[in-house]
Write a protein that binds this DNA or RNA. Structure first.
Lengths: 379, 379
DNA sequence: GCCCTGTATGACTGCGCTGTCATGACTGCG
DNA sequence: CGCAGTCATGACAGCGCAGTCATACAGGGC
């Protein structure tokens, strides 16, 4: 374990003390410079940085973590799928974390993974993290145990507050109000009721969308048709679409994500039903191809970036100022993207065409130019 | 910095020495147990594990990394998009890394990010990683500099060998041969030539697919129509599709990913061309909705999981046995999923319908049951 | 001139592990 | 019975930083 910089192997990496010697200062001062601490003269700072540059010095973050007790790392538990939603959220989290000066460790759990979320959290704690993000978890019936022995703040996206334990902060993606707005869009078009193709109910995200749909119908005193449940895949949407097609009385469908909506549309089309003339379909997520399928899909865009930034702000605050009262999360904007898969029910006069805001929408400042929403309508 | 476990705040986390005391052994023995070293009696091992369990002991990986010089962590640089390809590859990498006993740090870079891949690598090295994976990089004109001061093995997915520096191992996703097979599928159907909608040429992945397309055409002495270039998005595919529609002589298009293919199909359809009757379209990736768009898309599935596992095996070997000669990467399987967006050119007799293997395909053992490929054809 | 405050720096120590070496206890074999 | 070899354990040092405290000097108010 001696540090021989001898010939042959690559020389040992330079340490702070090497930089210090070269700059003619103490190791502690090098540490000060690299941590941006006060009370370092400009001259010394410059010399240290020069020496570090010349030696190719890189701080050893293991040593830093050991000495300081902080890793400057946030762990993320995501459900191991390439689903657009979780993937987008992860990207948002990564950027937000980096902006806040934290690196990221990720742990993917698949549905049915042994250990589940609790195991993932345990593993991250062992790897050393200052905080944990749980992204779009599913209900595994063990929320309590997740909290066991977790001594860092936990941010949970899209699950109820108790989930995550005592130091948890929760950030909704606002799925419920988004789902409600999506449903209301269909009701506003004149549909008497709206069918719902839900996501797997073990996912809290799926439950929220279901709840939003229920809320919209209840608020207007409409009856709630039986709920179909898919697994987020287009294949499950296709299967559900066949059921809906044979039901006969369906004029409007709200699918819990775009993939399922696309499957539904295909099944309906194959059954001889026209979308949107006979049946309107709304999706959820606004995946990149939604504007280009046939017909272009009306869908609810999720503000992943805003949600991720907002949530991470909370988490970082909980890490760095544990005593400050948590600032409340901002309400995410509601952005319904109206395309060609929704229309008034057959035999009813069409309301004004074009992009509309749902009744409860705050005016979205994020609205892209109309051209971004898809190809010019082909009607 | 004294360790007071006193009243009030949560008690300090237990250390190995606490476990040791409780189990009546030395701290070193606790270390042995947790590292699975030999020469620990069953009795002692059991006592140590019990004591650790009772105290809720978790190893401090910063201390371990500092003492051992290894972090058991692999850093991943990905291009910061929610594109299906990179996202799927990331998931595969994560699982493969975990299976090999490594945790993951991720760093997303966006196209045009300051610092680019080199900056990401530098940041990961500072965070402490034993190896680095660069996933689907783009050509930033600074490949040389990426290698500077990198003293860990680097695995590059989908970029030429020089990229990544001296300790680089490269794992292709085999995009070139996949693209060649996709193109050959269209030629086999009887098309005289095939147009190509390429991805952005800064991406090595896009260049590989272009090369594969060229190779297929050259091999049969077909002329190469001018190449269109998109940006992976369905919107760019739509734009390209309009150009193709107005060209008049197009019967077959190979798009470098499914999103663009879907955009192409929409544009062609709007222009009054039927897919596949007038124009055949092949995509690339087999994104989840491809089976359910209209028409269901013929596409080339990428074996992300196999590629990720294979690549990580190489990387882990380079980390743990730097002197062993690198085992060559296996050739990934070629799996063309034939759906309804391809057919013989108009006026020609149809070959046998149904799922076909491309001429050069090895018989894929991964082929899903026919039912998984999409809804029953609606023809 | 004196104390006080603010600024700038260094000496020393310890974070919690792993690597190395030393030391017994126990085996088998000539 | 003695010695080599294997197995099982412990003592000790040190990985490269950041925290704490000590120190030194500059300027300002009295």
């Amino acid at each position: 374990m001696t540090r021989v910089g001898g010939q042959g192997a690559s020389p040992a990496a330079p340490r702070a003390v090497d930089v210090a010697r070269r700059a003619g200062v103490s190791q502690k001062t090098v540490s000060r410079v690299f941590n941006g601490e006060r009370y370092v003269s400009d001259d010394v700072r410059r010399r240290v940085l020069e020496a570090a540059e010349e030696l190719g010095y890189r701080m050893n973050s293991a040593a830093r973590a050991l000495a300081s007790g902080r890793t400057r790392t946030i762990g993320v538990v995501t459900l191991g799928t390439a689903l657009y939603g979780p993937a987008s959220l992860l990207i948002g989290i990564e950027r937000a974390a980096r902006d806040a000066g934290y690196a990221l460790r990720v742990y993917n759990t698949l549905e049915g993974d042994p250990g589940g979320v609790a195991g993932a959290v345990e593993s991250l704690l062992e790897q050393g993290v200052d905080g944990i993000v749980v992204s779009e978890p599913i209900d595994e019936g063990d929320e309590g145990s997740v909290a066991l022995g977790v001594d860092v703040p936990v941010l949970v996206f899209g699950a109820p507050a108790p989930f995550g334990g005592p130091r948890a902060v929760t950030a909704g993606v606002g799925a419920e109000s988004l789902a409600r707005a999506a449903t209301e869009h269909l009701l506003d078009l004149g549909h008497v009721t709206v069918h719902h193709l839900a996501g797997p109910q073990r996912w809290f995200a799926a439950r929220d969308r279901l709840a939003g749909w229920r809320a919209a119908l209840s608020a207007r005193g409409r009856q709630q048709p039986p709920v179909l449940e898919g697994d987020w895949s287009a294949a499950s949407g296709y299967a559900a679409g066949r059921e809906l097609a044979s039901a006969g009385d369906v004029t409007a469908v709200f699918a819990a994500n775009d993939d399922m909506a696309i499957g539904v549309i295909r099944a309906l089309t194959e059954a001889g039903l026209r979308v949107p003339d006979d049946v309107s379909v709304v999706g959820f997520d606004d995946i990149p191809v939604s504007a280009y399928v046939t017909p272009p899909l009306t869908t609810m865009r999720q503000p992943f970036d805003a949600v991720a930034h907002d949530g991470l702000r909370l988490l970082v605050q909980a890490i760095e100022k544990p005593d400050a009262e948590p600032a409340p999360a901002n309400d995410p904007p509601i952005e319904l993207v109206v395309r060609a898969s929704t229309a008034p029910p057959a035999g009813r006069k069409a309301p004004a065409r074009g992009r509309r805001s749902p009744s409860r929408s705050n005016d979205s400042a994020h609205a892209p130019p109309g051209g971004e929403n898809g190809p010019p309508a082909a009607d």
